[in-house]
Each structure stands twice: as structure tokens, then as C-alpha cells.
């Protein structure tokens, strides 16, 4: 008996550091944000309980509604673009690496290298690359006689430019996951397909794709969460206002602006900010749960 109790105490003791850290830095803030989202603020002090008013404001009333949905729409664009471009290219690269062509090891490192850089460094670096006067992108274009646009300043190119940087930065990660998935496919399966006359295209779409379904699930879910929590790159490259004129505004920036304000334009409003954060959390959690369930169903065991 005492042995069992001692064991339980010991386990409790070992779990305590992690449990305390989690509760203080993750659970408590989440609960606090939930609480704040039901209150108005008098300046910076919690004032009145207003029920769901803050939620209704950010979803249905001006001036919040337009900004919320514009930001959400940008998140959707980011998600779809990353899903198709970033992960699509990653899938092809993974296949190329799988073929173990000469030099594939060094390429594996090169592809993965940007992933280890911090988003802050990548953001600043590419902000310089895109610079209309000194940036290498436009100077390279000038060599072939093209006058490049101010990538981050033009409302038509700004969001796409930042998405491209994100893809450049993260490409190696899905590539590695796909590669690991492909390496788990038994060699005889691939050989059998080859003997039946499958070329690369058939192999990629009919044989490998269904067999790397578990990898695809992970990549899909991570891309989804990453796209809807997108903050660092647009913050560094476009600023809190989602320059130019909100063309790169995403939910992360809008939440931050609303809750914490900006030095020279916005005010702090924890009530509406928390409501936005809670909605984002619920949306991401719910969608991820459903997507996970659906995607798991298409995974097959060999």
C-alpha cells in the first residue's frame, strides 16, 4: 500500500515542474483571456461584465467586422497558398531526395537549412531582398531588363511576397516529413509498381500519395495551425498595420493591434482583443479536430 502511495507521490513530484510551468504559462493565460473576453475595459482596468458583446462586436459590428473578415480572408489565402505551393514543392523535393541521386545528402541539408533560421532573421533578410532601391530581387530583375515592383509596398504583391518567404523558410520541414514517410514505404511495393510500368507521375499520384497519408495529415494540420496563427513574418515585413493599407492584415496582427494597441495610432483594448484570441483558438481547435478525424480515415496500413 505505502509503496503504491510513495510511487504516486514520486510520479506527482516528477510531473510537478512540467505541470506547474504549463499551468502558469499556458493554462492560466488561456483562462485569463477567456475571462477578459467577457468584460469591457476602462482604460487598462477591467470594468463591466458584458457577456457576449465583445464577440458580437468583432464578428458582426462595424468597425471590427470588416477588419476581422478581411484578416480571416487573408489567412485563408495564406493557408491555401502554403498548402498547395509550399507543400506541393516539398512533396516533389522529397521524391527527388528519395531517389538518392548523386549529391542528395548535401541537397537534403540545403533544403532544410532555412528551417533552423529564426523567423525574425528570415523576415529582415527578405525585407532587404525585396527593397525597391537596394534589394537583390529587383536588381537581379533589372539585369534582365525588368523593372520590378516595390514588392512589399504594392497591395497586389505584398501578401504573395510574404507567403513566398514563408514557403522558402519552411519548405524543408514538410519535405523532411514526406521523405520520412516515403522511406517507410516497403521497397517491394515500389518495385512492383515499376515492373507494372508505372512512371514517376503514376508512382507519385497513385502509389506514394496514398501511402504517405499519415505524413500528409501532419503536414496539413501543421500548415493549417501555422497559417491561422501567422504572425512573425507579416509583423516584421509589413508591420502591425498590415501595410500597405491592410493588404497583408491577418488575424494575428489584428488581434495584437486590438489588444495591445500601437504607439502612434491604436489604443489598448483587452476586451475585444481577448474575444478575437478566443475565437481564433476555438476556430483552430475545432477545425483541426475535424480535419484530423477526416484525414485519419484515409490513412491505410500496408
Amino acid at each position: 500500500m505505502t509503496g503504491g502511495r510513495q510511487r504516486a507521490l514520486w510520479i506527482l513530484f516528477l510531473l510537478a515542474p512540467a505541470a506547474i510551468t504549463m499551468s502558469v504559462f499556458v493554462v492560466y493565460p488561456l483562462v485569463a483571456a477567456f475571462r477578459f473576453s467577457f468584460y469591457t475595459f476602462n482604460g487598462l482596468r477591467v470594468a463591466d461584465f458584458v457577456g457576449l458583446e465583445n464577440f458580437i462586436d468583432v464578428l458582426a459590428r462595424p468597425p471590427y467586422r470588416a477588419a476581422t473578415f478581411a484578416a480571416l480572408w487573408h489567412n485563408v489565402i495564406v493557408f491555401l497558398a502554403l498548402l498547395i505551393v509550399q507543400n506541393g514543392v516539398a512533396y516533389l523535393i522529397a521524391y527527388a531526395l528519395l531517389k538518392a541521386l548523386p549529391g542528395h545528402r548535401i541537397h537534403q541539408v540545403i533544403v532544410f537549412l532555412p528551417v533552423v533560421l529564426s523567423a525574425v532573421i528570415v523576415g529582415f533578410l527578405w525585407k532587404l531582398f525585396y527593397h525597391p532601391l537596394f534589394g537583390v530581387v529587383n536588381q537581379a530583375l533589372l539585369l534582365v531588363g525588368v523593372n520590378g515592383p516595390p514588392w512589399l509596398g504594392d497591395a497586389d504583391t505584398a501578401l504573395g511576397s510574404i507567403i513566398f518567404v514563408n514557403a522558402w523558410h519552411w519548405l524543408g520541414f514538410p519535405a523532411l516529413i514526406f521523405l520520412a514517410g516515403m522511406q517507410r514505404i516497403p521497397l517491394e511495393t515500389m518495385e512492383a509498381a515499376r515492373l507494372d510500368g508505372a512512371n514517376d507521375a503514376v508512382l507519385l499520384t497513385r502509389i506514394i500519395w496514398p501511402l504517405v497519408a499519415p505524413s500528409a495529415t501532419i503536414v496539413f494540420i501543421l500548415t493549417f495551425i501555422g497559417s491561422f496563427n501567422w504572425f512573425e513574418l507579416p509583423y516584421i515585413m509589413a508591420g502591425l498595420s498590415g501595410a500597405p493599407g491592410g493588404a497583408t492584415d491577418v488575424l494575428g496582427l489584428y488581434f495584437y493591434r486590438t489588444a495591445f494597441g500601437t504607439v502612434s495610432s491604436g489604443l489598448q483594448d483587452f476586451g475585444h482583443g481577448s474575444a478575437l484570441a478566443v475565437l481564433m483558438f476555438l476556430f483552430i481547435a475545432a477545425f483541426s479536430a475535424v480535419a484530423l478525424r477526416v484525414l485519419r480515415r484515409r490513412e491505410i496500413e500496408l
Binding site: P63, G153, D154, A155, S241, A243, P244, G245, G246, T258, T262, S264, S265, G266, L267, D269, H272
Partner: peptide
């Protein structure tokens, strides 16, 4: 108060100049 005149004009001028 929100939206501040500053954020409105900043956004507006940025779009107008673009």
C-alpha cells in the same frame, strides 16, 4: 477612441498613395 483618427488616416493615405 477606436478606431482612432490616426489609424484611419494612416491606412487611408497609405492606400491613396498606392
Amino acid at each position: 477612441e477606436t478606431p482612432t483618427g490616426s489609424e484611419l488616416i494612416q491606412n487611408g493615405v497609405q492606400k491613396m498613395m498606392g
